[in-house]
């Protein structure tokens, strides 16, 4: 049995010289739900972009700005596996207005399956089941800009569920939601039976949903352990700009 996510000694610097990741290692087992926390600029987003191959670990020669290796669902993330990697890892970005770029909800949820090369009937079935999973069946024909933030966030999840991924990676899923929308969104995440890595500043949600928590700061993993234990360590939290919920 392989790990869902396996990151080994990953370092990465952006072309402008800014070092975003320093020897990050992280293993996530299938069906584990892990929270990724840390201050802005800690490298969470950069790490997330590696999991889906948008940023590539330097296995290919073209990318010499870092080192290390990323493996998801048993596949090394590199140019030739990109298609399968992207189907295996569903990555949802923070701002749903960036995630939902198509005129209608249906088009957006169908985008992934379409680029997987599935036949039209299968695409249709995928869209229906993905929308059902986020309980937004009635929204297929709706136009994205008429939706509330909470609705957009749900649709954003559906846009990757339709690709039937093994792993769901979310960036700041509860940012910008009002308390009611946040609550129903948390319930949704609890019910989804997938491996999850979620980056968030919402430590109350982390405590509620994620048994395991990884803290990053300045490009390093500074703590990795049971959420209940780490959240009691006030010194650790304070050192990395976090606050006990």
């Amino acid at each position: 049995m392989h790990h869902s996510i396996e990151v080994q000694n990953l370092s990465f610097a952006y072309p402008d010289g800014h070092v975003a990741l320093r020897e990050v290692s992280l293993m996530i087992a299938p069906c584990e739900k892990v929270a990724l926390v840390g201050p802005n600029g800690a490298g969470k987003s950069t790490l997330i972009l590696h999991l889906n191959g948008i940023l590539l670990a330097p296995t290919s020669k073209a990318h010499t700005t870092g080192q290390g290796q990323v493996t998801v669902c048993g596949m090394p993330v590199e140019e030739k596996t990109l298609g399968r990697v992207r189907a295996a890892v569903g990555l949802v970005f923070q701002n749903p207005d960036d995630q939902l770029f198509s005129p209608t909800v249906y088009d957006d949820v169908a985008f992934g399956p379409l680029y997987q090369g599935l036949p039209a009937g299968e695409v249709d079935a995928r869209v229906a089941s993905a929308l059902a999973a986020v309980r937004m069946e009635a929204y297929a024909r709706r136009v994205s800009h008429h939706l509330s933030t909470g609705e957009k966030k749900r649709i954003a999840i559906a846009t990757v569920l339709s690709m039937q991924p093994e792993v769901l990676v979310l960036d700041e899923p509860t940012a910008g939601l009002d308390p009611r929308a946040r609550r129903s969104f948390i319930n949704l995440l609890r019910d989804l039976p997938l491996t999850m890595l979620v980056s968030s500043h919402d430590l109350a949600m982390v405590r509620e949903l994620f048994p395991r928590m990884v803290i990053m700061d300045e490009g390093r993993v500074v703590a990795d352990g049971p959420t209940a234990v780490l959240l009691q360590d006030e010194k650790l939290l304070e050192a990395h700009g976090l606050e006990k919920p």
Binding site: I54, F93, D98, F101, L114, Y115, M163
Partner: peptide, 23 residues
């Protein structure tokens, strides 16, 4: 800046530069 983020969201779902649409 937004178009960069949209591009990433498209790539994350398998976009390869070709425009595809349902029949």
């Amino acid at each position: 800046e937004r178009s960069d983020r949209i591009y990433m969201a498209m790539v994350a779902r398998g976009y390869d530069g070709e425009i595809r649409s349902l029949p």
